[in-house]
Design a protein around this nucleic acid. Structure first.
Length: 924
RNA sequence: GCUCUGGUGGUGGAAUUGGUAGACACGCAGGACUUAAAAUCCUGUGAUCAUUGCGAUCGUGCGGGUUCAAGUCCCGCCCGGAGUACCA
């Protein structure tokens, strides 16, 4: 019987579907295992061969865990809100939902074709009102919460209101927008509007009037994570800073816990490091400087520094141009200079500012600060190398020990002072935190570390400074001026935001006539007068939520996807807890993976979930790149020159569809038919072949290098395709797609198939007892495959299967006792062929229900070992010896070898190292 | 610049605790079967030299070191990929 993969795969996919093989059942009483793939955005292009890499890997683990007796949650769904659908809607006038649903249908079809064991009954999409009802609900919880530093967690806003009513805000220790202090009496006297304004300073979802990333081309603001190199991540349009009223989420409240939590989860070190850097914790001190000529209680200049030890070396101060004190301290003579500089800085876009980082610029305010320890007067400058929104927006410049300050000092001819020994401050700044303090009064003679501590305690004693920790992380901008996103569950009364009643959820996305952003900074929803303006005079929030809102919690929804009463069923949450194993790309390191952790910690604080990290283990699959095929066109002609002949001609390169090329040889007939302009193409061949060039680059339509899983499955079957994707190499590594090697896997499955059939094509298994060799082959494979799945080395599993089948083939083994466990072992990797063979050999229930085979060490015991004999560390001979021999016996046997005698040349060996069961090394 | 990664045959890759470098595949070459091709099977395949046989030397980005023994550990460099970028 032929191995007809098309028929086999279809048959079992229908069977599993009908049988409900992959339905998850929380009542099974088994231990749970939650394995998750990252939420795909269903793009119009569908899947290419790179996408399924992670899906296949997670599917193998899911199936393996089921065989191991776990109840497995392995769901799939769609991050369905997003810009491409909206852009399509703007361009065509069609509803983005239609476009999205069409794409989802295509995605699902492709995923099902791969035999992935998802529980499709749990499929979710973020654009479904039944889903975003709960995204809006979580937002309301954020709105109704504040972060209490004393209890170090988020609490319901009522606990804050109660505190205000009794003690005012004097004892409140919260992560909040700076708020003047008030007493209980004052609070109780305030009217509703005043109280709400104050509460907004404390809420975890709040409205801020601050600088945002405005992207004119997209007509919306973007989060820091959505801006790369001064342009939008999607589309690459310029982004400028602009002050707007926006919703923010107070993620900064969780900065420390987001760092600490990294130590408790099993993630790639690289991703953890990216998150640590993104959060950007730095420890130092806040120091307050008096300004010359102002009174005691007048303006102080506060700075943040990580090097309080170098305070004696501070020879000037620098403020950000936007700093609040600038206008107050600037002297009459310097007013114009400063004004000009501020204007000039304002005009620069982020991009220009970045491009000009090497250019040094600044202006002198005319004012002086007083060094609290020396009394020295220090000139105060402004410069755009100091950022307004980091630290205090002001620094004490120590040119001797900070390279940026040094460059600034050189440029403006300011004094440079050495206060830490170790470098030559006339040549370059000495930034290392290592060395002895000099020229520094009471710090002299101390090493940097001790000096930092002493400086801080002196500052604290004098009441002019304290230890301080700063984070680079900013609160997350949560408003988008877009149509295709979740509407906010917020209405305004007299400009004060209130959450809508939870019973009114979901606030559905209304129909609009135009999907275009208004451009003035409001969304298409703002044009819907009837929707916006409510009968009682209040009005709705018209922004929508960003793309990452739904993806920050979707993995919880899979646990109880149809629950209409709660965002997550309590008992289901108790069972599944969090994701055991998460697989996806590394590109979400500072977006999705950080926001999800933030939301999860928040939900944990508020008692809605019982774990404080969402994803216990994370693996990043590598990218599969495209391998483009290149033709060389003779200049100004329709003649194409084969690759190795191009040095004789002047040629230009063009890319050709990789589907017209096999093993780098162009099918010239297909090429002529590809496009009308190539109909009469001529070729200069090598022999009778046209050899193409190749380049590795991103897989994309425009490069004609897209290979789809559909074409691979049609040609080789999905079992072969699945195994080949795994065989390519370690899952984490990026590599170019190359179809050539797939034949090896295809041959392997045919060889396996043939083990089950006699030469007339009839199924034929022997019931004979297996011999020691056969058992060894099987159990060696079981051991290796099991260990490798546990380590997630799926590529070497495939090699082991190949070795096993090759060895059994050589023995012509067709014994049931060997082949039956083998196909169970293989079932997670190639489920269809395994199920087919399983049922052909007389089993009636699905192979999916079988327990995974366990290896038995007894069958693996060897009695002899072929020792590699090296002389001076180089392999010279081999010798088969009994493993029971002791060191002396081995030594004796080895010395008698002719080869050894030859190398010894009559002299006794200097030294012999014998590692029993491993190696013998002789030093001569 | 800083941080993280990686560098092994013609190609994808293996070597899990310092112990036979190149498993397993692809490709290539030769052979068998065939009228022929495809498919299948067998043999060979790191490089150089020697080839009548034995063999010898080199070899995991480069240069050092530790060790009986280094792809693996240590020190210093080079190159690629990713992240980040005036973060005080």
């Amino acid at each position: 019987m032929e191995y007809n993969f098309t028929a086999i795969e279809k048959r079992w996919q229908i069977f599993w579907e009908e049988e409900g093989s992959y339905r998850t059942d929380e009542s099974s009483g088994k231990p749970k295992y939650y394995i998750l793939d990252m939420f795909p955005y269903p793009s119009g292009a569908g899947l290419h061969v790179g996408h399924p890499l992670g899906y296949i890997a997670s599917d193998i683990v899911a199936r393996y865990k089921r065989h191991q007796g776990f109840e497995v949650l392995h769901p799939m769904g769609y991050d369905a809100f997003g810009l491409p659908a909206e852009q399509y809607a703007i361009d065509t006038g069609n509803h983005p939902a239609d476009f999205t649903d069409k794409n989802i249908a295509r995605y699902r079809e492709q995923l099902q074709m791969l035999g992935l064991s998802f529980d499709w009954s749990r499929e979710v999409k973020t654009s479904d009102p039944a889903f975003y009802k709960w995204t809006q609900w979580i937002f309301i919880q954020l709105f109704h919460s504040w972060y209490n530093i004393n209890s170090d967690r988020a609490e319901e806003i009522n606990t804050l209101i109660q505190e205000f009513e009794i003690h005012g805000n004097e004892n409140v220790n919260a992560v909040c927008t700076p708020t003047p202090s008030f007493t209980a009496t004052a609070w109780n006297k305030m009217d509703e509007q005043e109280q709400q304004k104050i509460l907004l300073n404390y809420r975890l979802a709040y409205i801020g009037n601050s600088e945002v990333n405005w992207c004119e081309a997209l007509g919306t603001v973007l989060a820091n994570e959505e801006v790369k190199d001064g342009v939008s991540e999607r589309g690459g349009y310029p982004v400028v800073k602009r002050t707007m009223k926006q919703w923010f989420l107070r993620i900064t409240a969780y900065a420390e816990r987001l760092i600490q939590g990294l130590d408790t989860i099993s993630w790639p070190e690289a991703i953890k490091e990216i998150q640590r850097n993104w959060i950007g914790k730095s420890t130092g001190a806040e120091v307050s400087f008096k300004i010359k000529g102002t009174h005691e209680d007048a303006l102080d200049l506060n700075v943040f520094t990580t090097r309080p030890d170098t305070i004696f070396g501070a020879t000037f101060m620098v403020l950000a141009p936007e700093h609040a004190l600038v206008s107050a301290i600037t002297t009459e003579e310097q007013k114009n200079v400063i004004q000009d500089y501020i204007e000039q800085a304002k005009r620069k876009s982020d991009r220009e500012r970045m491009a000009e980082t090497k250019k040094i610029s600044g202006a002198f305010t005319g004012a002086y600060a007083i060094n609290p320890f020396t009394g020295t007067e220090i000139p105060i400058w402004i410069a755009d190398y100091v950022l307004a929104d980091y630290g205090k927006g002001a620094i004490m410049a120590v040119p001797g020990h900070d390279s940026r300050d040094w460059a600034f000092a050189k440029h403006f001819n300011l004094p440079i002072l050495e206060v830490v020994k170790g470098g030559n401050v006339l040549e370059a700044s000495y930034d290392a935190k290592d060395g002895e303090l000099v020229n520094s009064g009471f710090l002299n003679g101390l090493m940097v570390k001790d000096a930092i501590n002493l400086a801080i305690s002196k500052l604290e004693e004098a009441g002019i400074g304290s230890k301080q920790i700063n984070y680079r992380l900013r609160d997350a901008n949560f408003s988008r001026q877009r149509y295709w996103g979740e509407p906010f569950p917020i209405i305004y009364k007299d400009d004060i935001p209130y959450s809508v009643n939870e019973k009114e959820l979901p606030i559905s996305l209304p129909e609009v006539s135009s999907y275009k952003p208004s451009g003035s900074g409001s969304s298409p929803l703002a044009a819907l007068n009837e929707w916006v303006n409510l009968p009682d005079g209040s009005r709705r929030e018209t922004n929508t939520m960003p793309g990452w809102a739904g993806s920050s919690w979707y993995f919880l929804r899979y646990m109880s996807p149809n629950n209409n009463e709660e965002f997550i069923s309590k008992e289901r949450e108790q069972y599944w807890k969090n994701v055991d194993f998460y697989i996806g790309g590394a590109e979400h390191a500072t977006g999705h993976l950080l926001y999800s952790r933030f939301w999860h910690k928040f939900l944990f604080d508020r008692g809605f979930v019982s774990t404080d990290e969402p994803f216990k283990k994370l693996i990043n699959q590598g990218m599969i790149q495209g391998r483009s095929s290149i033709l060389y066109r003779k200049k100004d002609s329709n003649t194409f020159v084969s690759k190795n002949l191009i040095s004789n001609y002047e040629t230009t390169e063009i890319r050709v569809d990789v589907n017209l090329v096999e093993n780098d040889i162009l099918n010239t007939d297909l090429f002529k038919a590809w496009r009308p302009e190539f109909q009469n193409a001529a070729f200069i061949l090598e022999g009778d072949k046209y050899i193409c060039g190749a380049e590795v680059e991103k897989m994309s339509k425009s490069k004609y290098n897209v290979v789809t899983p559909d074409s691979m499955v049609a040609k080789y079957g999905c079992d072969t395709f699945r195994m080949y994707e795994m065989f390519l190499g370690p899952i984490e590594q990026s590599k170019p797609w190359n179809t050539e090697g797939i034949d090896g896997v295809s041959r392997f499955l045919k060889k396996l198939w043939n083990l089950f059939f006699d030469k007339d094509g009839n199924i034929s298994l022997s019931e004979e007892k297996p011999d020691a060799d056969e058992l060894k082959i099987l159990h060696k494979t079981i051991k290796k495959v099991t260990e490798d799945i546990e380590r997630f080395n799926l590529n070497t599993c495939i090699s082991s299967f190949m070795i096993c089948v090759n060895e059994l083939g050589a023995l012509k083994c067709n014994k049931r006792s060997i082949l039956e466990p083998l196909i169970i072992l293989l079932a997670p990797f190639a489920p269809h062929i395994s199920e087919e063979l399983w049922q052909q050999i007389g089993n009636n229930s699905s192979i999916n229900k079988c327990a995974y085979p366990k290896h038995n060490d007894e069958f693996l015991v060897e009695s002899t070992f072929e020792y590699p004999i090296s002389i001076n560390g180089k392999l010279r001979a081999k010798l088969n010896l009994d493993l029971n021999l002791n060191k002396e016996q081995i030594e004796k046997a080895v010395l008698q070898l002719e080869e050894v005698q030859k190398w010894c040349n009559g002299n006794p060996p200097k030294k012999i190292i014998v590692v029993p069961g491993r190696i013998v090394n002789i030093v001569v």
